[in-house]
Design a protein around this nucleic acid. Structure first.
Lengths: 222, 222
DNA sequence: CAAATATAATAGTATTACTATCGTAAATGA
DNA sequence: TCATTTACGATAGTAATACTATTATATTTG
């Protein structure tokens, strides 16, 4: 795990007042991650979150327009964090193939606690991403939010790994499909292994997700 | 397109009163598909649906416990329908490889109107599946609902195609992962091509989704 | 030290997601 | 055919949700 004074930037469109700028804002972030993990995003409300942090819901609304945007914020933070891990993992690695393998590892392996940023628990956040994040772009407002850059962090990760694939195979027709299939697939398979095991062959013991998507990518490249 | 007097069975746990047994029930099905497609599942309510069919919401509650279960019903109907298409496409096809290719075609190509069943528009239903269905099993009640067989139709499709893959490669370690990656991947890529095009290489013109996942599967088999 | 800003406390509103009751019409079945 | 389910429409009601608004107080900042 990387230990540097990292600072993750999130698109300012995603907050009304920057949550990392105050203690209350940081409490909102850390407690919302815990609460969404515990009760699920549907049952999660600003009122319940307010109770956890001993603040009225109206105070939370000063930071985030609604719970949807709060989760987009957390998801955006997550993908920026992953991009950071990605960049670190492949820095100074010369071989494009090796860079691809390390990238897939970052995208498929479980996320561990880092304890660098006190108000974000990366491990619990990754559980939320696995369980809840697909809902964020399956809405009627997706096009508008996409234009506002709500999904920029995710798209940036896809773009970065696609570039490696095109290095390995410049005329490859489906680099973005391959990468988004790996990312979405890894999230889904993690979820299936916990809740719908008959849809996967992954479990806690084997390293099936990394192996499967690594083999899949290499098959396409060669 | 197949034209026989098909009858799709849905798990009785998914309705309180069988919607195909009455005119009102059939109206609920046909109008809910249209309305969910138009306004999205979040904005969709039984009250709005009631207005469309000139019935009070309390009457709709006699058929479905809530809108979540109604969408699970529609999704279950959809996967049973797909399984039907699948069985038909591979009947009397001897070569397992050919059966796999035809299966992937069914799973990746656009769904067309069939007009066999007056109360279900398969094309619009498939749009709903693409936009909304992932939300159904990303909930806190997924385990309980899975035990009740809410997702049986989907699992049945995965099982069926996995079996073909195991015919081709009996010792293959990841048949279920491969199939669920193709199914979820195809849905996602269709969605991306409409709303987040930078995450895919598919569009309306090219046949990228079928080509990509066919090549992916064949790469794994050989 | 004045002024801006942040927060807590409280109240209020439209909508949602139901549940309950009741009268009537239609279907059923003996 | 007549009694009895049952299905439906009409209406009312409730707790929770997703906000918005106001005001007093505390804190920060210039």
């Amino acid at each position: 795990m990387i230990n540097l004074n990292i600072h993750i930037e999130v698109n300012p469109e995603l907050y009304s007042k920057n949550p990392i700028s105050s203690e209350l804002g940081q409490h909102i972030l850390s407690k919302s991650i815990e609460l969404i993990d515990q009760i699920g995003f549907e049952a999660f409300t600003f009122k319940k979150l307010g109770k956890q942090i001993n603040s009225p819901e109206s105070s939370i609304y000063r930071y985030f327009k609604n719970k949807h945007v709060l989760l987009v914020y957390l998801t955006s933070w997550y993908w920026s964090y992953i991009e950071y891990q990605l960049v670190f993992a492949i820095t100074n690695v010369e071989s494009p193939k090796e860079r691809l393998l390390k990238s897939i590892k970052v995208l498929t392996q479980p996320v561990l606690e880092n304890n660098q940023i006190p108000y974000i628990n990366e491990r619990i956040l990754s559980k939320i991403i696995i369980s809840e994040s697909v809902k964020l772009y399956h809405t009627k407002s997706v096009d508008e939010e996409n234009r506002s850059g709500f999904f920029g962090a995710y798209k940036s990760v896809v773009k970065r790994v696609s570039a490696i694939i095109l290095e390995l195979k410049p005329n490859f027709e489906y680099p973005n499909m391959l990468v988004s299939t790996i990312i979405e697939g890894a999230l889904h398979q993690k979820y299936f292994s916990e809740h719908l095991p008959s849809l996967t062959n992954a479990n806690n013991q084997n390293n099936a997700i990394e192996k499967f998507y690594t083999q899949m990518a290499l098959n396409f490249i060669k």
